[in-house]
Amino acid sequence: MAKQHITTTINGEEAEYLCEAQETLLDVLRDQVGLTGTKEGCSSGDCGACSVMLDGRLVCSCLVLGVEAEGKTVETIEGMADGEELHPLQQKFLEEAALQCGFCTPGVLVAAKALLDVNDDPTETEVRYWLAGNLCRCTGYDKIIRAVMDTAADLRGASA
């Protein structure tokens, strides 16, 4: 089957790739574009390790086809920091030890940023339900939830 030529924007830069019709965005990102920060944990949309933003919407990239990114914008974990300057969520996750093995961390961070983009003062319950699609087997979520809420508080303080 002929591969399809896709033009898209990934982390702010125009990108092109060739992909089979059945290839997922996750496979394309990892195998063709070389962005392996997005992780594969289940391929069924249950674990959230492959979370990315597609045209500003949080999606599991294992449930999106590579061809669907045509003309859209994709944001992955690799685009979260601004050069050497970490995003406040990344910095807070480090300071508060909100990761252990780190495998779910890219997806959690992408999802958490999506939350803070729409809600700058989430309650604990809101954070827990927003991140309910991002499985973490190491931390028991405690430090993740705290880090997200503390980042939100810092950002509110900074903009106040």
């Binding site: 990892r30 990344q90 480090l94 300071e95 990761l99 495998f103």
Partner: peptide, 20 residues
């Protein structure tokens, strides 16, 4: 409680796991 030495790689997607 210093920041872990492998931390930045793990919050930026640079850390290399088995399938990477």
């Amino acid at each position: 409680r210093p920041i872990r030495p492998d931390g930045v790689d793990k919050v930026t997607g640079r850390a290399m796991y088995g399938a990477d």
